[in-house]
Amino acid sequence: MDKDLTPEQSLKVIESMIGQAKKSFSRMSFYFLLWGVLLIVAMAATYLLRNGSEAFSQGASWGIAGLIGGILSSIHGAREGRRQPVNNPMDRVIGWIWGAFVITMMIVIAASVSNHQDPGGMITLLTGFATFLTGQIMRFKPLIIGGVLFWIAGLAMHFTNDPLTLTALYCGSMFFGYIIPGLMLKNQEDGLRTA
């Protein structure tokens, strides 16, 4: 790979390398899988324990899931950040999107709780927004589809108060919006690492 080039060859090299750079995102599957599992468990616990425990009926499982997820994500993020062989500016954009998502989600939760409303539907819509954008930036179709599924589930959640339907909608959207794309992303990342 050490020779002079024709203009056509130059253009091919440029396109190919820019294409490689665009695909060089840090490993993100961990976050989708971690949060997917944690939030499904939190939702299932809220549903199953809604009549038995006051703490769980008031959302203790979400607090526990948030704490565990936050700690594990921070540890993993710090470790991966040190190992990462490339700094892609798009990684930072994705980080901003999820940072903005967390801030907006906190505000939505605070506003909903103070108005005695369930924030689930609104949070699911917001999750769709962040997941869809992440998928578009990464050009990863399963996340784009996942984002759309979150939107559909979030919309449907506004039209029902039945706890079982709400749980099914939330867990289903998490499974198809986080877990399945997360597993597919992990396969792709493992493939790139061993290529």
Binding site: L5, V13, I14, M17, A21, S24, P85, V86
Partner: peptide
């Protein structure tokens, strides 16, 4: 106007910073 140097610069245009091993792998 050299294949490897152009490849390196084209790769670095798309990222902010890259390790030697990353450039080695991609080029």
């Amino acid at each position: 106007h050299n294949q490897l140097r152009l490849a390196v610069v084209s790769l670095l245009v798309g990222v902010e910073e890259a390790d030697f091993t990353f450039i080695l792998e991609k080029t």
